[in-house]
Write a protein that binds this DNA or RNA. Structure first.
Lengths: 337, 337
DNA sequence: TCCCCGTAAGGTAGCGCTGTCTTAACGAAG
DNA sequence: CTTCGTTAAGACAGCGCTACCTTACGGGGA
């Protein structure tokens, strides 16, 4: 029986579980955390008692005592992009069933905002952080370093082997698009981009490098504004005015490409007859739009899944052989090119 | 100076702030929480000391001591629907700057999964819960009741005045669409729906009721499958086969309508000439698709914003006069009807 | 036979904060 | 001048859990 301290939550505590199981509190604690030094017989007694009482551990007490929460923070640059939603969902599906809380931070493509989020989230003593890409402020890096929180980087890869990353080569994807458009006989090619984050720039680099290797010049129209369907139409229109002879466009994401398709339809411009379009990410809509959009299919769910599993391995203190997981990408050729 | 207990986090604690400010620990605690019984002079001393040390409160300790966390749980039926993303973003923008953690639970349109989430999230002793709609299991209701967590319901409204809700009338929105299509001279009208949650059904009821009042029969094609662009095309196609004379369709959301527009374009069916389309939610793409889609614009950001503010008022113990906040909706007429 | 050491269980003492009760101080009323 | 009520500050005792250290026990080697 518990003493009637008015501040108690009323929920069963570890002490009650231990008492019912006839062991000490610390043994019950160890049994429920699967610490291997506990006699299996005692451990099962503890689990029975826990179930009988409907015991649920108090995360706050655990965090306070161990100076480490069961929360994993995930920082993404946007939620408006369906891409990251799918990654987050995959992360959730791995971590939640294993008792981890997933905290989402949206830094709106701002390094400063990301730094602020890191600063704030460190207060809750997360057991791990999943980050998007590698481009962040020095202060962010120092904070992460000083707090010794395991980090996994998503979406991009790196040569550095002291960091963990799960993703694919954005540059290679750009190059594949370039070669695809060249193979289709297109020669007057452009990269149209918005929201110029590191990955968007890498895609463009890969695209332009592959064109240069083929001896073809690349046009480019890149604006820092947030990406949107409407912007895609505008950018296509202004590119076309400046370069009426353009015959192939690589958009840095599908949203822009969708907007361009609508604009082309309005202007009566044939796609891919007069100009071919290629998008990036392969959002669900791209398979249905008229004309269906050729796009790079990115493994965003798998990125989330693998990143979460890598984090689990780090938390378990496992020896990691592969610090870089390249999940590749796939060019899905459809009607628009 | 702190004693060198190896288990300490190394971060400054409230005790150190209190010592530097020359007050007791509890006074420092009260000062930083803006408890009104603290002398303003002492309070400002405490705030200075806190800033000087770079003090950040430990949420776990606070939660353990007060038996209530600074976390607000938000339960939504889906993240794949852009609608809820915008609502979540608005909630974040209100609650995070005020020191609350926002925890997102996605119950995938499953009452059972929602119940499970409620059960699990109660373990962290959230200070409030934001819920979507009113349709949940009895066990869920009992859990919420028993734990005395303040709740705010989003998206739908209710007559019951012992609950807090922020949203708009889904039925009225359906009725407005019906009257709009009738005004356009359409007489062979259908409701096409997927993912039949309470709100989708309410929209259909409003639509059909308004048609009945005008003496017009309503066709209906409703499937429980998850909504998607592809499904919209399929549903439109099968409706058209069964009822080639249909001349106006209300889709339960924009995704379905977009898919139908693509399908119509493929089949060479004129929209709105032969059949008019109306969507629901007014996603960004609807203003750009060809033809631009008529839709009900729903105030999802405002729903999030107002729900969060209502929660803040509840947490502050304020007296709430308006327990129901009706934010309305707007029919945006475009080319498709 | 004794000692040492490895392993499993327990005792103890916090982690950092806040609820509750108590005390101190002060002005107003009798 | 005393008494009382009110407000502000502090003392104290946990909240529920786990890290750390200690103890108990048994087996193997000298």
């Amino acid at each position: 029986m518990r003493k009637e301290a008015s501040r108690a939550t009323g929920r069963p505590t570890l002490a009650e579980v231990a008492q019912l199981a006839g062991v000490s509190q610390i043994t019950a604690s160890r049994a429920l955390r699967d610490v291997p030094t506990v006699d299996p017989v005692l451990a099962s007694k503890v689990r029975e008692a826990s179930k009988a009482l409907g015991y649920v551990p108090n995360p706050a007490a655990r965090t306070l005592a161990s100076a480490r929460s069961q929360s994993v923070v995930v920082l993404v640059p946007a939620l408006s992009n369906q891409l990251f939603i799918e990654t987050l969902e995959a992360i959730h599906n791995v971590l939640r069933p294993r008792g981890y809380e997933v905290l989402i931070g949206n830094f709106h493509y701002s390094r400063e905002e990301e730094e602020e989020l890191i600063r704030n989230y460190l207060a809750i003593q997360p057991c791990g952080i999943l980050l998007t890409g590698f481009d962040r402020t020095d202060a962010s890096l120092r904070l992460l370093e000083a707090n010794k929180v395991p980090c996994v980087h998503m979406m991009e890869l790196t040569k550095a082997d002291d960091v963990f990353s799960v993703g694919f080569s954005q540059e290679d994807a750009g190059a594949v698009v370039a070669r695809h458009l060249l193979a289709k006989g297109k020669r007057r090619l452009a990269y149209v981009a918005a929201q110029l984050d590191a990955r968007v720039i890498q895609r463009g680099e890969g695209f332009k490098r592959a064109l240069a290797e083929a001896g073809v010049d690349a046009l480019e129209l890149a604006v820092p504004d947030p990406s949107s369907v409407g912007l895609g139409g505008e950018l296509f229109d202004s590119l076309l005015r400046r370069h009426p002879d353009v015959d192939g466009i690589f958009f840095c994401n599908d949203d822009l490409a969708h907007g361009a398709i609508f604009e082309a339809l309005r202007q009566g411009i044939s796609v891919p007859g007069r100009v071919a379009f290629v998008g990036f990410n392969d959002l669900p809509m791209s398979a249905h739009i008229v004309p269906r959009l050729t796009s790079i299919h990115t493994p965003r769910e798998d990125v989330g899944k693998h990143a979460a599993h890598l984090m689990l391995a780090l938390l378990a203190g496992a020896e990691i052989r592969e610090r870089t997981i390249d999940l590749g990408f796939e060019l899905v050729v459809r009607e628009s090119s």
